[in-house]
Amino acid sequence: MNSSIKFPFYVRLSFMVISLIGITYILCIGKSVLIPILMAFLIAVLLLPIVRFLNSKLRFPNVLSSSIAVFLFVSLIVGVLAFISYQISDIADDFAEIRKNVNLFIVDIQRFIKVNFQVSFWEQRKYIEDVTQDSVEKGKETIGTTILSVTDTILDLTLIPIYTFLILLYKTHFVLFLAKLFRKEYHAKLQEILTQIKGAVQSYISGLILEMIAVSVLTSIGLYFIGVKYAILLGIITGILNLVPYVGILVAGVLTILSSLTGTPELSMILGVIMVNIVVQIIDNNILVPLIINTKVQINAFVSIVGIIIGSQIAGISGMFLAIPLLAILKIVFDKIESAEPWGYLMGNNLPKTFKWKKIKPQKDL
């Protein structure tokens, strides 16, 4: 006997809106706990093939397989960070040269403004001093917040590998928990949802890694040909920061311009750096992203941008990074639930050419 109750549309819509509001509120107040867990979940899904290979092919126990997978991942991250830190120490040795070239570049800019806009050096200097003073006062107010943010980041970097290991260790336990939440007739659909979520997350994260490598290589080659001193380092930094939507590439561009001043203060070098970043972004947005990312996650650009903005408001950079995979998971769930299927279609990337309403014959009054 089917005991399910069918509610009217406005009731189901109200429940869904209330649920979204509740989930958003929980994420806002519990982001310090939930964000590291979500990051660990994505990493665990990415490492799952390694764990299964060690389990099935090499007959390693689950504890050892999970430990080795997490150790390899952490070692890779530490190796990349060590290389970047070593190269940054070389840039620090050239800090005096960078400062001198920055001053020369600023003088050239001030001379250009004076000649073309009739603004004297004194007026420019006065404006810069006023802006700098306001920035210093605001900076003093945010020092405590910055220290707390750095402390939270260090704590998250410590907890994420631990969470990842535990998720890999108890993955079967979590699946059985989900199975106990639903009746047996829904287990086939639940299994299908979990399989698609695993495939989507693995494809998305692996696609991001491929995109990061491609952007790093292209940027390094471009910077090398225009004569930038630390081309490989700046290319790697650009590829890593490109993982953060919209904001990351701007930060990478500023760092690249500052680092290029180790060699010369000429405007041609800075213009060359800007052109390299623009060309790489054109290739990334028009070739790499459609080829690598959009084929993995079928979410339209409007929903992606809105999700990234909401994620940034909730959890900053971490929220921006997590927005797309979480939206992909939501779309998979919506597509498999009949009452939520229209929302899954709304998030999708299918663009119908035309749509015509069916003609309905007017009913005669009785």
Rank of each mutant, 00 (worst) to 15 (best):
L243P: 02
S339N: 04
W343L: 14
S259G: 11
V273S: 03
L271Q: 11
G344F: 02
G235N: 07
P245V: 03
S339Q: 10
N242L: 01
T295C: 10
T256R: 07
V303T: 14
Q298S: 15
Y246D: 10
F302G: 06
V303E: 04
I240R: 06
I337E: 12
G311M: 06
I282V: 14
I282E: 10
A323N: 02
M320L: 06
V297M: 11
L250R: 07
G263F: 13
L322V: 03
V273P: 01
I270S: 12
Q313I: 10
A323K: 05
I249Y: 10
L330E: 03
L322N: 00
N285D: 12
Q281L: 09
I310G: 07
D284L: 06
V280P: 01
G263Q: 13
V297N: 03
V333T: 08
L241P: 00
I337H: 03
L330P: 01
G344C: 06
T262Q: 11
I287T: 08
V279D: 07
V247D: 00
P245M: 08
I308H: 07
L241G: 05
V247R: 03
L267N: 13
Y246F: 13
N300W: 01
N285C: 08
L326I: 13
A323D: 06
M275V: 15
G239T: 04
P325C: 06
I240E: 04
F321D: 02
G344I: 04
L267E: 11
G272R: 00
I314E: 03
V251M: 12
I257F: 12
S268W: 07
A315K: 07
T264F: 08
A340G: 00
L261Y: 04
V276Y: 05
G344S: 00
I274S: 13
L241E: 00
A340L: 14
V333M: 09
T256A: 15
V276A: 03
S260F: 09
Y246W: 12
V306I: 15
P290T: 10
G272P: 00
Y230L: 06
L241W: 04
I332F: 03
L327C: 09
A323S: 13
S318I: 03
K336L: 08
I308N: 00
G235K: 01
A315C: 02
I236A: 11
T238C: 12
D284T: 09
I309H: 00
Y246R: 06
L241F: 15
D284P: 09
G239H: 05
M320N: 02
S339M: 11
S312E: 08
V251R: 06
V276E: 02
M275I: 14
I240C: 10
G307V: 05
F321V: 15
G235V: 06
S304C: 12
G253M: 13
G319N: 05
I299K: 00
Y246L: 12
I337M: 09
Y230D: 11
A315Q: 01
V276W: 00
A301P: 01
I293R: 11
F302N: 09
N285Y: 05
I310S: 04
S260R: 05
L261C: 12
I270G: 04
F321P: 05
L330V: 08
T264S: 15
V289N: 09
I232W: 07
S259L: 07
M269G: 05
